[in-house]
Amino acid sequence: MANGRDTKEIKRIRIELLVALKVVYPAALQSDQLLRSLLVLFPTLEFEQVKRDCHYLTEKGYIERVSTDSEPDASLTPWRRRWFRLTTTGMELADQCIHDPALEES
């Protein structure tokens, strides 16, 4: 459990992150835009949770950060302004070509 959210909801949030990015693939979305779209389903969601999940999904190789030309130093870009997009593996997962038990509702 993290921040009062149970395992089921944590999985749901991560799945919805992937679904949102799948809609715009191969383009990207800013983490702030991801949060706003997820608030429709998870009204109490906070940005810190989205940030953690972006970290998690990035380390899993499902999403990746995209730096634009207007970001000379990407590390200085505020988190809410950072762009993320699905990787090919993330796309396969979103299309259910592959399965990850950690992202399936039991």
Binding site: T89, H99, D100
Partner: peptide, 10 residues
């Protein structure tokens, strides 16, 4: 890029 370790195709 890190490849997912727990991904399975079966």
């Amino acid at each position: 890029m890190n490849r997912p370790s727990s991904t399975s195709v079966v």
